[in-house]
C-alpha cells in the first residue's frame, strides 16, 4: 500500500496531507487523554503500535505470486477507537519512509490516509456492527481486522486511480488495474492479519472471558 516517494502529483500529495492532518491531531489528543485517564492502558497502547510495527515489516507471499504486507492497525482501532491509529500508523510509515525508502515524505499524507485512517475506521465500524449483530468476540475481531486491512489496499488503489486515471477507461478502469495488483494479493494476507489479531488480543488480555477482553485491554476493566 506504500505509494512511493514522488509518485503522486504534488497537488495530490498536498491534498492527502491536508486531509490526514486533522485525524493525526485528533489522535494525538486522544492518546494524551488515554495516558492521563487510564494509565493501565498505556501498555496496550504501546502494544497496539508495536503490533502495527511488526506486521507492516513482514512482506508475505500471496497466491498472486507477489508479496505484500499486512497493516496491523485493526487491533488498536478495536481497543481504543480508530483515532489513535492515525498517530501510531504515521510513526510506522515515517520509520519506513526515512530508513527504508519505503513510501515517502511526499506520499506520507496519502499513505497515512489509507493505512492509518481508512483501515482503522473500517475495522472499528465492522467491530461495532459485529457487536450489534451479536457476533462472538473472535469472529468480530477477525472480520474487523481483516476487512480493515483489505480496505487500506482498496483505498490505495483508489488513490492511485484518482491520480492516474486510465486514458481510455478512466478512473474506474485504473481503479480495477491497481485493485488487481493490490486488493487480490491482499485477500489471503488480510485473512492472516485477522487471525493474528485474534491470537494477539487473546494473549494480551490473558485468561479471561471473551466478553471482557476489549474492556480489560482498554483499561476499563473492573
Amino acid at each position: 500500500m506504500h505509494i512511493m516517494e514522488g509518485y503522486l502529483p504534488a497537488a495530490h500529495a498536498l491534498g492527502w496531507t491536508i486531509a490526514a492532518a486533522p485525524f493525526v491531531v485528533a489522535g494525538t489528543a486522544r492518546i494524551r487523554a488515554i495516558i492521563r485517564e487510564r494509565p493501565e492502558a498505556r501498555l496496550t497502547l504501546a502494544a497496539s503500535g508495536a503490533f502495527a510495527f511488526v506486521l507492516s515489516a513482514l512482506k508475505i507471499p500471496s497466491v498472486t505470486g507477489s508479496c505484500s504486507h499486512p497493516t496491523g492497525t485493526g487491533l488498536g482501532a478495536i481497543v481504543f477507537g480508530p483515532s489513535v491509529m492515525a498517530v501510531l500508523g504515521l510513526i510506522v510509515l515515517l520509520f519506513q519512509a526515512l530508513l527504508l525508502a519505503h513510501g515517502g515524505i511526499t506520499t506520507l499524507g496519502a499513505n497515512t490516509f489509507s493505512m492509518a485512517i481508512v483501515g482503522p475506521w473500517v475495522a472499528f465500524g465492522i467491530w461495532k456492527l459485529a457487536g450489534k449483530l451479536g457476533m462472538p468476540f473472535a469472529v468480530a475481531v477477525f472480520l474487523a481486522a481483516s476487512l480493515g486491512d483489505l480496505a487500506t489496499y482498496v483505498f490505495t488503489s483508489l488513490q492511485l486511480a484518482f491520480a492516474y486515471p486510465d486514458p481510455v477507461s478512466g478512473f474506474f478502469g485504473a481503479a480495477l488495474k491497481f485493485g488487481g495488483i493490490f486488493a487480490i494479493t491482499q485477500v489471503p494476507l488480510s485473512i492472516a492479519e485477522g487471525l493474528l489479531t485474534v491470537v494477539v488480543m487473546e494473549a494480551l488480555s490473558g485468561k479471561i472471558r471473551d466478553e471482557d477482553r476489549v474492556s480489560t485491554l482498554a483499561g476499563e476493566g473492573k
Binding site: 498472486t64 507477489s66 487471525l195
Partner: peptide
C-alpha cells in the same frame, strides 16, 4: 489460528511465483 496463518504463507510459496512487491508492481503501472 496460528496453523492457518502458517498455511496461508506456505501454500503460495509452494505454488510458486516471482514474489516481487505489490508496491513495486503498482509503481511500474504508474
Amino acid at each position: 489460528m496460528l496453523l492457518a496463518v502458517a498455511l496461508l504463507v506456505i501454500v503460495p510459496l509452494l505454488k510458486g511465483g516471482e514474489f516481487g512487491g505489490a508496491d513495486g508492481a503498482a509503481a511500474a503501472l504508474v
